[in-house]
């Protein structure tokens, strides 16, 4: 008989991170495929956030509590979660693949002699066998992965792999308060802050022309800028362009920048690393121009041109100009 599934509910700055609900959906599917119950785990100084997830179809909610869990630190979270895992000895622990989870979950799993099956994009759970799928080589390959050895297996799911609104609702799960011990916390966090008030809100624009490494120099961005202006849109970029200082950081699309869903997204010279894709994959129409026919950006593009963006963009700009009269 199995020991069930635990799913981690993340909260930050007083609110539950909604990717936690995607993790609940993933854990429920895993539970259905393996005949196991799902229990949510919330860490905190009090049961406030645990009380917010009782509406899901769950066997229960564990509220692991200690005053040292009021602010997130990897030391406190690993200590607390370790006790929950030892108490329950679950078959699986499921997490959303967030920056916070990346910070403490490997430390937790290491205490059980394991790593995480991290950043999964799919899962097939049937008749007791479970196959996880994850991306390799910055999105160029997929791999099917199975857990090996004794319980517990730890897995994280990429944002968007499951839909939070598909997490099943239930009849009201009960909250179990579990006081936990937390040892020495060796780091003191200060309050989170935003660098600059974002001058540009790209989430409201209809058309985005985004440039990546393929643009080659800061001067060349003018080409993309001209196209963006013609379309009444905004210029944006992948991380390397903002790191190089060619465009300000508030133009960055992706996990560490803005998340957008414009009607039209034109990706110029962007290969499509996962970190970029999560920020734009919900755009209505996606166009990709890249020299490399294997670039992962083409996996999510509606229209693709394999070729030199310096040939494509001027022609495209002229043709659109003509169409617009």
């Amino acid at each position: 008989m199995s020991n069930g599934i635990l799913v981690f509910i993340e909260h930050r700055q007083g609110a539950i991170n909604k990717t936690s609900f995607e993790a609940v959906a993933a854990a429920q599917q895993l539970g259905a495929g393996t005949g196991q119950e799902v229990t949510a785990v919330v860490l905190g100084a009090d049961p406030q956030h645990a009380n917010e997830v009782t509406g899901f179809k769950l066997a229960g909610v564990v509220s692991a509590e200690n005053p040292k869990l009021a602010d997130y630190t990897p030391d406190a979270y690993a200590d607390a979660f370790e006790q929950v895992v030892r108490a329950r000895n679950p078959a699986f622990v499921i997490f959303p693949h967030t920056y916070l989870v990346r910070d403490f979950a490997p430390k937790l799993a290491a205490r059980f002699g394991k790593g995480l099956i991290s950043d999964c994009i799919r899962m097939k759970a049937e008749g007791g066998s479970v196959v996880f799928a994850r991306r390799l080589f910055q999105g160029k390959m997929d791999a099917d992965v199975t857990a090996r050895g004794e319980v517990t297996a730890f897995a994280t799911f990429q944002s968007g792999a499951y839909r939070g609104d598909q997490a099943e609702r239930g009849g009201g799960a009960s909250v179990e308060s579990l006081p936990v011990e937390v040892g020495e916390v060796r780091m003191q966090p200060e309050a989170p802050f935003q660098e600059v008030k974002q001058a540009v809100d790209l989430s409201k624009t209809d058309v985005i022309v985004a440039v990546g490494r393929g643009i080659k120099s800061q001067e060349n961005i003018a080409l993309a800028q001209k196209l963006a202006e013609l379309l009444g849109g905004d210029i944006a970029a992948s991380r390397p362009i903002c790191d190089a200082g060619w465009l300000p950081i508030d133009r960055q699309i992706g996990s560490s920048g803005q998340t957008v869903a414009p009607k039209l997204y034109i990706a110029l010279g962007i290969s499509g690393a996962i970190q970029h894709l999560v920020g734009m994959k919900n755009a209505g129409t996606i166009v990709a121009v890249n020299k490399d026919p294997e670039a992962p950006i083409f996996d999510i593009a509606d229209y693709g041109i394999v070729g030199d963006l310096f040939e494509v963009v001027p022609t495209l700009t002229d043709e659109i100009q003509k169409l617009k009269g």
């Binding site: 997929d142 791999a143 996996d299 041109i305």
Partner: peptide, 21 residues
């Protein structure tokens, strides 16, 4: 080792891309 890579393959396409030109 806690996990086994069973199979590596080209990513399943999420969209049917029209390649132009």
């Amino acid at each position: 080792e806690f996990q086994t890579v069973e199979r590596v393959y080209l990513p399943l396409k999420q969209k049917q891309t029209q390649f132009l030109g």
